[in-house]
């Protein structure tokens, strides 16, 4: 077992643990904290792949900005423990086997196709490769994203502005 593999398994286990806690926790603030664990663990996994830029962005944007927003919203709404309804119990009964089936299925599929996937070229991992992709091949959707953000800003204005 190489050190990389050990680090990978530790981070992966952390991510899965965080994700399970996120769903299982009753208090939204616990869920939010668990989500931070997931984000940081994922950032570590990206770093392991040599994608240092994506890892940094993951920490800054997801672990930082978005999580702060989540925590703020939870605090502003003063959200308490979530209530369990009969529907959420049904969701649990149906959801757990479905989630297990999906992960088993994906694991099997990945195992079977890992050989082929390993041959696929990975160009985007490095910061240089990523910026080449973003600002050359994918420049059109990249620019469109700015309009997408503009729409979101406009929406916040429309829905939240004071009546005049």
């Amino acid at each position: 077992m190489t050190p990389q593999l050990i680090v990978f398994f530790v981070l992966a286990a952390l991510a899965v643990l965080g994700a399970v806690t996120l769903i299982a926790a009753r208090h939204p603030i616990h869920s939010a904290l668990a989500l931070i664990v997931v984000m940081v663990a994922l950032a570590g996994l990206y770093l392991l792949q040599g994608a240092e830029f994506v890892a940094a962005v993951q920490i800054i944007v997801y672990g930082g900005a978005i999580m702060v927003l989540f925590v703020f919203v939870i605090m502003l709404l003063n959200a308490g423990e979530e209530e369990r309804t009969s529907l959420s119990r049904i969701a649990r009964v149906a959801g757990i086997p479905l989630a297990l089936a999906l992960s088993g299925f994906l694991a099997a599929a990945v195992l079977r196709s890992s050989h082929a996937a390993a041959q696929a070229p990975v160009t985007a991992a490095s910061t240089r490769g990523l910026s080449m992709l973003l600002f050359r091949e994918f420049v059109f959707p990249f620019e469109l994203t700015s309009f997408l953000i503009l729409v979101a800003i406009l929406g916040a204005l429309v829905l939240a502005q004071r009546e005049n």
């Binding site: 994918f138 059109f140 959707p141 469109l144 994203t145 309009f147 997408l148 729409v151 979101a152 406009l154 929406g155 429309v158 829905l159």
Partner: peptide
């Protein structure tokens, strides 16, 4: 697909608002 995804989101988010 990614371009289509951005298009889908642009149309959807405008629609929600």
């Amino acid at each position: 697909m990614l371009t289509a995804f951005i298009g889908l989101e642009m149309s959807s988010i405008s629609s929600y608002i």
